Computed example of a mutant assay.
Amino acid sequence: MRTTLSSRVLVAGAGAGSAATLAGAFAFQYIGGMAPCALCLWQRWPHAAAVLIMVLALLVPNRWLMALGAVAALTTSGIAGFHMGVEYGWWQGLQSCSGGSIAGISMNDLLNPNAAVAAPVRCDEVPWSLFGLSMAGWNMVLSLGLTGVWIMAARRA
């Protein structure tokens, strides 16, 4: 007997996947003490959008909302892929996060040699990896999978 998942179940799963990915990112930040770089933060926004889209699509099932969820997941996957390439030196990153930006540091702290100023978090360093993939790499892979789930949901709607 063949069973197929409904579009509602797929939407819930895709949105829950984005929520879990966000929860993992916040756990690494607040429990693990790993401050995110600018590209890490950019990867979070499409996941947040996907969670919001999930809520809307569960309230008002709509193929276009599900397609928009796929776009959100694909967007974060693209940002993560770019970030992974920067981390592994395949291409240049943004100057603002790979060149040691001083954005957000006050002029007084810059001029005070005794001020405790945290070093900027660089986008071109791999702070954590598992099986050769950085966090950005895992986000790319997981988000591509979530894109597929959103597309399956849209096709079944």
Rank of each mutant, 00 (worst) to 15 (best):
R2N: 06
T3Y: 08
L5I: 03
S6I: 10
S6L: 06
S7D: 03
V11C: 08
V11Q: 03
G13V: 00
G13F: 00
G13E: 01
A14W: 01
G15Y: 01
A16S: 14
G17A: 11
A20R: 11
A20D: 03
T21D: 03
L22Y: 06
G24L: 11
A25K: 10
A27E: 00
Q29C: 08
I31A: 15
G32L: 08
G33T: 01
M34D: 06
P36W: 13
L41F: 04
R44S: 04
W45V: 15
W45N: 14
W45C: 11
P46N: 03
H47S: 08
H47Y: 03
A48C: 08
A48E: 05
A50R: 13
L52Q: 09
L52H: 07
V55Q: 09
V55K: 11
L56T: 13
L56W: 11
L59A: 15
L59D: 08
V60T: 14
V60W: 14
V60L: 13
P61Y: 00
R63P: 00
L65T: 03
L65W: 00
A67R: 15
L68W: 05
A70E: 01
A72F: 04
A73R: 09
T75D: 06
T75P: 08
T76D: 05
S77I: 00
G78R: 12
I79P: 01
A80V: 07
A80E: 04
G81I: 06
F82A: 10
H83M: 06
M84E: 11
G85L: 12
V86H: 07
V86M: 07
E87Q: 15
E87L: 12
E87Y: 12
G89K: 13
G89Q: 06
L94K: 08
S96R: 11
S96C: 12
S96W: 06
S96I: 15
C97N: 14
C97H: 09
G99L: 09
G99F: 06
G100V: 12
I105C: 09
S106K: 07
L111Y: 05
N112T: 10
N114F: 02
N114E: 05
A116W: 02
V117S: 09
V117K: 12
A119H: 01
P120K: 14
V121I: 14
V121Q: 07
R122K: 15
C123I: 10
C123S: 11
C123M: 10
V126H: 13
V126L: 12
W128P: 04
S129N: 09
S129Y: 02
F131L: 15
S134I: 07
A136P: 05
A136W: 03
A136C: 07
A136Y: 03
G137V: 05
G137M: 10
W138G: 07
N139G: 13
N139M: 13
N139R: 14
L142V: 14
L142T: 13
S143Y: 09
L144N: 09
L144C: 12
G145M: 04
G145Q: 04
L146M: 15
T147M: 05
G148L: 10
W150Q: 06
W150H: 07
I151P: 01
I151L: 15
A154L: 07
A154M: 12
A154V: 07
R155M: 01
R155D: 00
R155Q: 01
R156G: 03
